[in-house]
């Protein structure tokens, strides 16, 4: 298996699951469209720009403070792609569940197995698609979408009192893109055990992979709650699902509705960038990767003798 073959396998995934490619693009297009048709730009940035005294003061101050401008720019440019990420995660969830199940259901597994492609290469190509290829695609799509949206908003705010929002900060933008790329790959590492679990269910389930993926953990949580009246499993799973977003959203700790002075200061002083790199220091990231590796190895082994639907 050389690199060319491996990329053929990844390409194959996009032929079968075209949503992996198109859903991020369509979601991004909808965001751009929303920016075009929105008469009030404020909706995009969640700041009250009804120019009462408070807001006027805010934007007047913003106009003269480059650092605060760049940070606010990073915050809204960094968060505007969030819908693309969230929707792609949902698409990836169903992709991974289907990845090793559909080939048995439509019996095409016998065609794939007639080619010199090992079970490891097959399973890893699907994992790679979900953890590297599609995150890179989401990043690229979000980058273009961000620039387009910025352009539209810049045009709309020019000449208004909120014109400081339309200033492009190249340095902050470059840092942001690197951060977002890094965050996407960190998200892959953080969610790897879930990806591994979905692949394992996908290769194993004779039918209804969705139920097999979701019901067992749900039942365990339910029984724990009923029998022991505790929620350890639920907390464990909930932590795995949400903690990535907690790590990556430090930049969003902007207090709103507390007067322009407080908002301004919180943008400027509590902004720590939006890197999720703090995850790298967490043992949970690494224990998750070990679990992911076990799930993936099991999936590879199970596919070896799987040829029946």
């Amino acid at each position: 298996m050389n690199t060319k073959s491996f990329f053929t396998l990844v390409e194959r995934e996009t032929w079968e699951h075209r949503g992996l490619v198109w859903v991020p693009v369509i979601t991004a297009a909808l965001i751009v469209l929303a920016a075009i048709i929105s008469s009030n730009v404020s909706g995009s940035i969640r700041l009250d720009v009804e120019l009462d005294g408070e807001s006027s003061a805010f934007f007047a101050r913003l106009a003269t403070d480059e650092v605060a401008q760049a940070r606010l720019f990073s915050i809204w440019m960094g968060s505007i792609g969030l819908p693309v990420l969230v929707i792609t995660i949902i698409v990836l969830f169903f992709y991974l569940l289907d990845a090793l199940y559909a080939e048995r259901k439509d019996r095409s597994i016998l065609f794939w197995k007639s080619m010199p492609v090992s079970d490891s290469a097959t399973v890893l190509s699907k994992l790679f698609t979900s953890m590297v290829a599609i995150p890179l695609w989401v990043w690229a799509v979000s980058l273009v979408m961000g620039l387009l949206t910025f352009l539209i908003i810049a045009l709309k705010v020019s000449g208004t009192p909120i014109a400081p929002l339309g200033k492009f900060h190249l340095g902050a933008w470059l840092v942001l893109q690197v951060t977002l790329l890094q965050n996407l790959l960190l998200a892959s590492l953080w969610y790897a055990p879930i990806a591994g679990w979905l692949l394992l269910v996908s290769v194993w389930a004779k039918r209804a992979p969705f139920l097999w993926a979701v019901l067992p953990p749900a039942l365990v949580m339910l029984f724990e709650e009923i029998i022991f009246n505790t929620e350890h499993v639920a907390q464990f799973v909930g932590y795995r699902l949400t903690h990535y977003f907690e790590s990556a959203s430090m930049g969003f700790n902007v207090e709103t509705g507390a007067g322009s002075q407080v908002i301004f200061d919180s943008i400027k002083n509590t902004y720590e960038g939006m890197s999720a790199a703090s995850l790298l220091a967490e043992p949970h990231l690494y224990s998750g990767l070990v679990v992911a590796a076990i799930f993936v190895l099991l999936a590879i082994r199970l596919r070896r003798w799987r040829d029946d639907a």
């Binding site: 073959s5 053929t8 032929w15 079968e16 439509d106 019996r107 095409s108 016998l110 065609f111 007639s114």
Partner: peptide, 29 residues
């Protein structure tokens, strides 16, 4: 599998596969 080929049944090529992609796939792997 480098040296062996097989056709298991007529129904095993998946419905979503395009003819040109099928050729690209085998050429690739």
């Amino acid at each position: 599998m480098q040296d062996v080929c097989f056709i298991a049944d007529v129904a095993v090529l998946p419905k979503w596969l395009r003819v040109s992609d099928a050729i690209d796939y085998v050429a690739g792997v």
